[in-house]
């Protein structure tokens, strides 16, 4: 568990929705990519159900919705490399940091508050 954060940035994008039930995750990731393309230093926080985005293999399914796995793979090309995962959600879903598609730092509630405070702009999806 991290208690101090090395990273800060221009924008924190908080992703709170799982991949397939809605377009929240896709549209949140789109906002992160565009911000990075505009030169912002972007961090991503996967919170609550949002950590399901980090389960590998979120490909398009039978419903024909776009998958998000490929988008997560693109983040590095946009220099988005600061990833945080809500530790309580990891516990709740019995997920370990090694299970995640992106190397994400588990963060507790107090650290999430620090993250929000250390970014000038916060968008929540």
């Amino acid at each position: 568990m991290s208690s101090s954060l090395a990273a800060n940035g221009d924008m924190l994008v908080i992703l709170r929705h799982a991949p397939h039930g809605s377009s929240w995750l896709r549209e949140g990731l789109d906002a992160a990519l565009v911000a990075a393309a505009f030169g912002q230093r972007v961090s991503l926080l996967f919170q609550g159900d949002g950590i399901m985005a980090l389960v590998p293999g979120q490909e398009p399914g039978a419903l024909g919705q776009k998958g998000t796995a490929a988008t997560l793979d693109m983040l590095a090309m946009y220099d988005i490399e600061s990833f945080y995962a809500d530790a309580s959600a990891l516990d709740r879903f019995d997920m370990a940091p090694d299970d995640l598609q992106l190397p994400s730092l588990p963060v507790d509630g107090a650290t999430i508050a620090q993250l929000i405070a250390s970014h000038r702009l916060v968008l929540t999806f």
Partner: peptide
């Protein structure tokens, strides 16, 4: 407009408030 305008807006204003 594009999402880039949202980024610009966030940088221009003192407060950007989300209603979701």
């Amino acid at each position: 407009t594009g999402l880039g305008q949202l980024v610009d807006l966030g940088n221009q204003v003192d407060r950007l408030v989300t209603f979701a």
